[in-house]
């Protein structure tokens, strides 16, 4: 019985490109002085991948390029969403990044703490307790 690898290739492209985007957007937004530059680069690479996907007659290649290209285009928008998370304190700010340092002055909610870096405890917590659960004091 022959196997059809189109689903496996689709799954790998989807999982690996989500994982890559998830990590890359966070790391790049953390250190980059601007977000328009990484957003533009991700969008350009995404468009090139889509163009290549349309150009190839190989279905496995067209599939991988098509999925990875679209997730890169999504990542281009995620830089803005990640920046908003920094302002709200939903993701940790980097005081060494001038853009983040400005958010820390302008938004009371911005913080260097990663509020999500813990296991769930099974109940609602106050802001004070949420901080204590990650700092341990």
């Amino acid at each position: 019985m022959s196997l059809n690898f189109i689903g496996l290739v689709s799954a790998l492209a989807t999982f690996l490109s989500i994982w890559f985007g998830h990590v890359a957007v966070r790391k790049i937004e953390f250190i980059s002085p601007t977000i328009w530059l990484p957003s533009t680069l991700f969008a350009l690479v995404g468009i090139v991948f889509e163009w290549l996907s349309l150009s190839t007659l190989n279905f496995l290649l067209s599939t991988a390029l098509g999925i990875i290209g679209i997730t890169l285009l999504w990542d281009a928008l995620e830089f803005t969403r990640q920046q908003n998370r920094i302002k709200k304190g939903h993701a940790p700010a980097n005081p060494d990044n001038p853009r983040h340092a400005r958010f820390m002055r302008e938004y009371a909610s911005a913080t260097t703490l990663d509020m999500l870096k813990r296991d769930p405890i099974g109940r609602s917590v106050s802001q004070t307790e949420a901080v204590r659960l990650i700092t341990g004091d």
């Binding site: 989807t14 996907s53 349309l54 599939t63 991988a64 098509g66 999925i67 997730t71």
Partner: peptide, 17 residues
């Protein structure tokens, strides 16, 4: 032109959404 990958990419966008 091979629209399979592009169309699947758009579908992936909605499935991730």
């Amino acid at each position: 032109m091979n629209f399979f990958g592009f169309a699947l990419g758009i579908s992936t966008l909605f499935i991730i959404g």
